[in-house]
């Protein structure tokens, strides 16, 4: 698992380079990549794959919002490389492979689980960002009063 968390770190750093994240923030995006995979592997047995994916994405998105405010950077600088290791690319690949081998039963099963995993990642991002949006809106309203 340590190796996998490290791989999550490296893949996030790699994406940070591919999308040209500012050099000063690259290490932090790596931490988020590792964090996402760590949360996912720790909760996978207890919460099931989809639930673990949701928690992983939520933790990454929450920390991205925190980092963005702390270091005065746009949120997507942290969020994009951070969630990349969680994207269910492997499942999508196996789906395509099953369809190619005319194994439609397996293909549809994998397709549905790919959709659920991708949905879990999206839901994690949406919920974490919404929490921060409500919070900053509340702060804004309070300042107006």
């Amino acid at each position: 698992m340590v190796v996998q968390v490290l791989a999550g770190f490296v893949s996030a750093v790699a994406f940070a380079f591919i999308y040209n994240v500012p050099r000063s923030e690259i290490f932090r995006t790596g931490i988020l990549g590792g964090l996402g995979w760590l949360t996912f592997s720790l909760t996978k047995d207890a919460g099931g794959e989809v639930g673990a994916m949701f928690l992983g994405a939520t933790s990454v998105a929450l920390c991205s919002e925190l980092f963005a405010r702390r270091y005065k950077q746009p949120v997507i600088i942290f969020l994009v490389p951070g969630v990349i290791p969680l994207v269910p690319g492997g499942r999508a690949y196996l789906t395509m492979l099953s369809f190619l081998q005319h194994d439609y039963n397996e293909g549809v099963t994998l397709l549905v689980s790919t959709f659920f995993l991708a949905g879990a990642v999206a839901a994690g991002i949406i919920i974490a960002s919404s929490i921060f949006r409500v919070y900053s809106r509340a702060k804004y309203v309070r300042r107006q009063l």
Binding site: Q4, S11, V13, A14, F17, I18, W37, G89
Partner: peptide, 16 residues
């Protein structure tokens, strides 16, 4: 450097 890190990323995904 970008290409090199991209390669590292591909290797990291394979490990993942």
């Amino acid at each position: 450097l970008r290409l090199l890190m991209g390669g590292m990323g591909a290797a990291a995904f394979t490990v993942l």
